[in-house]
Amino acid sequence: MRPDTHDKGRLAVTVLVSVGRHPLTGRGRRADQDARGVELARALADAEVELLHAGRLDAGSEAALRGYLGMGFEALSLLEQPAGADVLPALAEALEAAGPQLVIAGEQAEQGEGSGLLPYLLAERLGWPLVSGLAAVEGVSQGVATLLQALPRGQRRRLKVRLPAIVTVDVAAPAPRQSAYGPARRGRLDVQAAPVVPDDDLARWQAQPARKRPKRLKIVKAASARDRFKAAAAKAEGGGGQVLTDITPEQGAEAIFKLLKEEGVLR
């Protein structure tokens, strides 16, 4: 394993990267979410960032991994694993040995099962807290990180997490920088041996290209022809809405204010 060479003052960050798959051409590429994770780590002030990948090294994956090196790295640690292996033990051992303060990973892989479970299993095994859907790291001080988590509908939530921790990023994180060709060529891939555990379950499942999901039909459960006709000819109406006529603007505003308050959209 790598020797522990971290400076005391600097934040040790490890980014788990994987080989992605272009949705149209099917070629290997930087995985989008992992690249965003690398971008997030690059933006951290005073951090020592390392890249870690567990998988095969062949022509297709090397081009993709060099894409990460082109974001400004000299080396990438590669734990050699055959296809169809469970990478959890290898990654957990490597992380235990290196002892980073913050581990950043993409939410879901673009190849294989892509269940998004790996960060959770790592967190459970290492006993670290996990935060999903990160938008930004606002600061790290005295072993506590202040994070900004992305919520649906463009909302953000601020969290404080005790380090060491694992965080995952999705499309809400900042877009990755372009990969530069020269650094990508010059970068090193440090291949290391790692324990190999085959994933037997995955081998048993049948995988096939995703079928288009059937569109949900509008099922009309009507007993009579009249009901069916009414359902087919119905206009979109709320029905049973409250209409306030002949009131002062203040009363109207009061009613609206009450509804907004109930729905919890006012802050």
Partner: peptide, 18 residues
């Protein structure tokens, strides 16, 4: 007809009050 709550009145004044 679509609304769950409808206020009939001058929108400027209602917004001001709100």
């Amino acid at each position: 007809k679509r609304a769950d709550l409808a206020v009939i009145g001058d929108s400027t004044k209602v917004l001001e009050a709100l």
